[in-house]
Design a protein around this nucleic acid. Sequence first.
DNA 1: TATGAATGAGCCTTCATTCAT
DNA 2: TATGAATGAAGGCTCATTCAT
Lengths: 199, 199, 199, 199
Amino acid sequence: MPKVGMEKIRRAQLIEATLEAIEKHGFHGTTVSVISKKANVSTGIISHYFGGKAGLIDATMRYLLEELKQELLNHLPHTKNHHARLHAIIDANFASVQRSKKAAVTWLVFWTQSMHSADLARLQNVNSKRLISNLKYSLRHLIAKEKVEWSAQLIAAQIDGFWLRNALTHTQHSSHNQAVETCKTLIDKVICDYGLSTK
Amino acid sequence: MPKVGMEKIRRAQLIEATLEAIEKHGFHGTTVSVISKKANVSTGIISHYFGGKAGLIDATMRYLLEELKQELLNHLPHTKNHHARLHAIIDANFASVQRSKKAAVTWLVFWTQSMHSADLARLQNVNSKRLISNLKYSLRHLIAKEKVEWSAQLIAAQIDGFWLRNALTHTQHSSHNQAVETCKTLIDKVICDYGLSTK
Amino acid sequence: MPKVGMEKIRRAQLIEATLEAIEKHGFHGTTVSVISKKANVSTGIISHYFGGKAGLIDATMRYLLEELKQELLNHLPHTKNHHARLHAIIDANFASVQRSKKAAVTWLVFWTQSMHSADLARLQNVNSKRLISNLKYSLRHLIAKEKVEWSAQLIAAQIDGFWLRNALTHTQHSSHNQAVETCKTLIDKVICDYGLSTK
Amino acid sequence: MPKVGMEKIRRAQLIEATLEAIEKHGFHGTTVSVISKKANVSTGIISHYFGGKAGLIDATMRYLLEELKQELLNHLPHTKNHHARLHAIIDANFASVQRSKKAAVTWLVFWTQSMHSADLARLQNVNSKRLISNLKYSLRHLIAKEKVEWSAQLIAAQIDGFWLRNALTHTQHSSHNQAVETCKTLIDKVICDYGLSTK
DNA sequence: TATGAATGAGCCTTCATTCAT
DNA sequence: TATGAATGAAGGCTCATTCAT
């Protein structure tokens, strides 16, 4: 009887290899041959588990999104302090990227691809809306009602902007930390300016 | 009887066709054949004038950067009102994108490619530094010295962040205008908070 | 505890599945995977019992030939009425095909393959000669000696011709019956024209 | 300016190479690589002129059909002698095959493929009907009305049957001639049996 | 005896580049 | 200066076969 339960292992193996390949060779240079070699498996296995290269790319993108989602869930659940919660959102959004450059490159690739793939565009949209929604949820408890939407957009753009600039420049850790601090300061400033007097 | 002065015309023709192709078909779908058809020329001409597809892509990226540079030069040449100058920087940075979707897609592609091309990375870096430098030049006249760098980074990230989010969502004009307004408000807020008492 | 006597069962199972696969998906679409699924066994079993796909195909062809041979043996064993015997040959040759479309498609495939396989070509040749030989055996009792060979060739071609045309057009039963009738009429005509005056 | 008018030459070259490849290596062994080498061109050219291997196979089949059609047109136009016309149909149907074994193998492949391709099936059907129609046209002038259809089916099957049997056995010219003679004799017999007394 | 995960050779196709015209 | 027919390397995919279990 052949090995069972390999599917999970192989899928993880191949997704990890894909992330490495995209980081090292770029999207164009990420061929099934390159991925296979990195994962130490044959090329055929990709079609076997993902139905083809496109399926693997898709799964990799979903993996990144899911990872980010989990990161948020792990950082934010048990607090009623909305100020702290907003800071935690910042931490979560930079956490995975801070860990490795792989994710940063792949996020950028993912965004670029999403402009010409309805499927990826939908995923990207969900992700984008979640950030806004998370921000608004806490902002509602802290600042004037009519400023919530505007502030959420501001902070979201600030996060993505730092994120993008850091990805493009050969990032040191310091700049990541600086980005996190700056985002938090911006939040504080927003709360300070539009904060509810009594709560 | 060889036509002279065709080089300039052909180069412009092909760069424009490349921008259109990337917008319509994405980077992956932008083949030499597609570009040639859009430009109504033969495929061979690309190698003739640009030495190959890579040369054309490179030239297209440089064209975008040059365009942005000119945009900035045209909007902020002769003013000593640094508050107005900062607002003009915002306008300039969103102007080209506001005009067409072409640039937005291509910028994203450009950034992604720049991560795996030393040449493009250098161009991107120059561009990124110019924005910071332009912001700092005016901020120095308006806010406390020790806040200049930090504020420039903040505003630059804000610009890129809005820019990115707008590119990824199917942008309406309203959101572009909103982005411009929000960036200007952020600038005002920074000046208000850290502004020099006397000027 | 190894099951014994599985070989016969498995071989029959797989040959039947192969016939079904060829009928449904054509020769090109008949992959090891398709056959295995139809037979509800693993892919490995094919190599185990037939040494590979080629062996299974070969066995399937032999099975068809054997089936036809048996059909003939069952229909014409104990008769000395050679006129009836000739008619029985016709019946036998159309019997298996009349039963299902499977055989028709597979026969055609078999013939085609036999042109590039010495092994199959030999089988096909034996089969072809048996029909002629069977026809001649009875014809010798009914018609002039010098017309026997010619008539056998005529009738054999008539059988195969009808068979082929019926296989290619989406056959109704009526056309099969018509083919049988026409072949029998041809036999009668031959006997009538070249028949021995006394018998 | 590049060479013009090559399309016709290349298409003919490739179709001829395909016929040779099918004859020599069978349908399965007929790869684009094999065809290209036989035609002394690159593999890419097949997609260029035929949109892919399938297009080339299709064109090859159509070529065979067209050739047969022309053969018929060339042999039958200027005669009002319907007896001679029927004999000419026989000649035409065996002519192309008599010339080379290539066509014979390919016809068989074509027929087999046509069972799983709607497109090829339609072509095959048109071809099959044309033979019947041609036979009936002349038979109507020669034999009793109620025997026309039956006789046409008989003769058509006879032709195809000989054709098939000759293709399968390693044909000598003599057997081809014999097939032609036998078919003609069958026609004569039919006319003799069912012929119109007066015309 | 039986499985099916894994392999990798071989296939068709795409596409940047070349070169005779 | 310009063409586009032709090339052929490189890509992704299919599938018969193998082998650890």
